[in-house]
Design a protein around this nucleic acid. Structure first.
Lengths: 195, 195
DNA sequence: CAGCGGATGTATGCAGTGCACACAATGGTA
DNA sequence: TACCATTGTGTGCACTGCATACATCCGCTG
């Protein structure tokens, strides 16, 4: 049958599903991200996406992987080779801004069940982790990178999460940014001046 | 009817629901925490819990509030009035241990949609926040408490989250604890020695 | 000591979900 | 051209949250 004009085969349903998933994420938040809704939006039968995503977790992981990549770009846009703690603070602000401006995506990335075997996701996480290590090495060339990078990532990530959960009363974005800056300066010494 | 021996009225269904919810959390993880499952376990009709919890979010918030209180106790048990950075590190280790040992509860507390109007939840969060402020004041009496406490909470919380998500490869609990300790020491100066 | 009314639990139903299964169309390849 | 793996469809089941109407019970007031 299918004399409706639309071809039986979609062409690139996988990509269409990912696009639909992102749109749903923006509109309805993470809760609205269902395989059926994705299928509906892609104009396809409710179970068609299962050909490309074994289950919901796999879809979520694919979306999350995209999010990691975008976060990395977003941070790199804020600063590429920070030298001072002020530079680092701006990267932290960018991280938190990403979380606050796109809460649904951020939660998908960090607070949603996902497929632990997803290589795409693992690679995207490794990329962001590597980027953070580079940054820290650039700002603190004389210190051991590993533990410091872990600590800074945790700090910034924690700031983002606490802001997102409304653990802080973040009236204005400006205020949130200042809180992030002061938290960074409370824990980080002036960069590059360490012997 | 109800000649089954069980009384029509439960007595304290609200408490029973919370208990059931916690058991489900331990057994099936956060995903298994549904109002219907709770009702089943409490031996009551599927919609009975709605008399005590307006919707799922309210139930989740109540469970989370309990979790915050337990976390506070758990931390206080690790240390009550830390003076050195080592002491603080042990509290951080306790925080992360709580998260890793009871991931489902931790995720309910920090990564699940909840009722933003829940006063019980807000109070429990305020309590943990106050406890953390006390700790930081105790360890760093000469420094401004507010931004430092925020930063430290964020740091520890971020460590917990990244561990939980497997962003770090945490083979043994011992290894995880060491990573937490070294992260803390990477960012915190020796406590109480600051002028 | 009624009996009445609010609080509590039940029964039923609807829409939505993930997922398993059997089936149909398609297009590259032998 | 005929085959057949890939991709999409249709149907069905178990489950969920939640709205609604109904049953039962307890405590309070007459």
């Amino acid at each position: 049958m299918s004399r409706t004009g639309v071809p039986y085969h979609h062409g690139d349903l996988r990509a269409a599903c990912l696009r639909a998933a992102r749109e749903l994420l923006e509109e309805d938040g993470g809760a609205g991200l269902s395989l059926r809704a994705v299928a509906r939006r892609a104009g396809v039968s409710p179970t068609a996406p299962y050909r490309h995503f074994a289950d919901r977790d796999v879809l979520v992981s694919a979306v999350a992987a995209q999010g990691y990549r975008e976060l990395t770009e977003h941070l790199a846009a804020a600063h590429r080779a920070p030298r001072t703690t002020d530079d680092l603070a701006e990267i932290a602000v960018a991280y938190v801004r990403f979380a606050v401006e796109r809460p649904a995506m951020f939660k998908v990335m960090f607070a949603e069940p996902c497929d632990p075997t997803s290589e795409e996701r693992a690679a995207a996480i490794a990329a962001i982790s590597g980027y953070l290590h580079d940054i820290v090495r650039s700002a603190f060339p004389s210190r051991e990178t590993e533990p410091l990078a872990n600590a800074i990532w945790a700090l910034v990530h924690g700031l983002a999460f606490l802001h997102l959960d409304g653990k802080f009363d973040t009236s204005t974005p400006q205020q949130a940014a200042d809180r992030v800056r002061s938290a960074i300066h409370a824990l980080l010494p002036p960069a590059s001046t360490t012997p």
